[in-house]
Design a protein around this nucleic acid. Structure first.
Lengths: 172, 172
DNA sequence: TATTGTTATACTCTATAACTATA
DNA sequence: TATAGTTATAGAGTATAACAATA
């Protein structure tokens, strides 16, 4: 009843961490005010939110977050070995085995032995995988737009351009 | 020896996932070209990189990534209960117990029973914690600058402003 | 009965280390 | 001997469920 306890021990204004007028990104993760002005904190928070949200939102497409990343990498870099994929994803090669099994089971990719080096297994993107990638790109864009709902489409493009430039240092 | 194997099965140009001229963020995580243009992918990658890097870089300050976040939240929102902290961090309350123990052991925060509700434990930022927070902010900014080394300081400010605006939708 | 802090248990995820085959 | 893929094991991290104190 008494929700007017607005003072605490020292007589300070009582903390009201949730008296914020900022909407949560998702039911999942509230947005701490403390991240304002803290670029690293914001990036960390957005990455964690994506990690928490992406799998369930991408389920309709038939991939999880890492599967989406793999399709994107295969689309841009062309067919590659599982070790190359693992390095680009920053994970141990063993992690990808089951994931690629799944992608292969859905007809998104295929594995072929490299005749030049029969140890290697070339992973190739298939047409169904390209379609899934296009859908996943759209879902991803929707998630970003909902996470950054304060930005107009033009501003999101601006953000994308900034991140692109930041991640590609030696383009000169 | 023969590193000129530039054709594969189908005679396609052999994939050269690592023939990229982009520097890795860190020894830890290489940067896939596929994230260019994919905002969600870039944010996910940056968040994962921060997660992988932050703990070791912040060790000199005496906190880990979550400890840094807690200090920042306490600094902005004032003293709060552990449940409030847990909600803002998006984790289970039990996770914070050991973390706050550590912060308290270093003199960064203190716990006090709330006399109005003796179940609650008010966590308060101490002066040493404020100093640690300032140092952690600097370390965090350095990490961001190294991850986004293609951006000038002015552009990083621009990025920060964009993220701020995006995360605060209902400011009108 | 509901809630706060705490502890203990179970589960998920992934890195590490074998193992097989190819080189 | 070294490397690609695979599998099995172990460890880190965390959510879930109990527990004690207080409301």
């Amino acid at each position: 009843m008494n929700d007017s306890v607005n003072e605490d021990i020292a007589g300070n204004a009582r903390i009201a961490m949730f008296d914020q007028d900022c909407e949560p990104i998702d039911p999942l993760l509230p947005v701490p005010r403390a991240l304002l002005g803290r670029t690293g904190f914001m990036l960390f928070h957005l990455g964690a939110a994506l990690d928490a949200i992406a799998d369930s939102r991408l389920a309709a497409v038939g991939v999880d977050a890492r599967g989406y990343c793999m399709l994107a990498i295969l689309s841009v870099d062309g067919p590659g070995s599982q070790h190359e994929l693992a390095k680009l994803l920053g994970t141990a090669p063993g992690v990808l085995v089951a994931d690629i099994d799944q992608l292969e089971g859905k007809g998104f990719v295929e594995r072929n032995r490299d005749p030049h080096d029969r140890r290697r297994s070339r992973v190739t993107l298939l047409p169904a995988g390209e379609r899934a990638l296009a859908q996943a790109d759209q879902v991803s864009a929707e998630i970003v737009a909902s996470m950054l709902s304060g930005l107009s489409p033009a501003e999101i493009e601006q953000l994308t351009a900034l991140l692109n430039r930041g991640l590609l240092p030696s383009s000169g």
